[in-house]
Amino acid sequence: MQINATVIIINVIAILGISFSFFKNKQKSIMALKVALKGTLNMAPSIGIILVLVGLLLGFFKPELISKLLGNQTGLVGITLASIAGAILMIPSLVAFPLTASLVESGASISVAAAFITTLTMIGFVTLPIEIEELGRKLTFLRNGISFIIAVVIALIMGALL
């Protein structure tokens, strides 16, 4: 029921990729699988949190409430709040998409979703110190600052288009 073209394409690409890799170099392929496993284990707690959180969200928060808090009528305030949340939070984007999708399903606006996803991925509050150390203050603040504005602009455009 939940299997569609995207699922099939992703899995086919992965299977083709790993087969080709094994054909070329067995050792490297085993290493790749190890990296994949380690990445999955590292992400396991976040996956668990999102699973339970989405259950809570859809079970307890009525769509009316979510749409009141994050719906279209919140306008620029909603978008700005979503952008700030996205900039500060450190959620792996892989698990952020389902979370955002379920928010949209229960009434959050497209703009809010776009703003949240864009700042979440582009801006790293937690990684700021590393970025400053490597690239200097000027470039870091310019990149993160402009990214924030871009996120709001993209959110507004998407709200208008979708």
């Binding site: 992703i10 992965a14 790749a32 994949a36 999102i50 699973l51």
Partner: peptide
């Protein structure tokens, strides 16, 4: 609540392993 969690769980099982394998492949190659 349980239905929502379960649905998402199935979703993850269907795509996450493939995505992680792709990332592993790139990091090695």
């Amino acid at each position: 609540s349980i239905q929502a969690s379960y649905k998402l769980f199935v979703e993850f099982i269907l795509i996450l392993p493939a995505v992680m394998v792709l990332m592993g492949l790139f990091s090695v190659w």
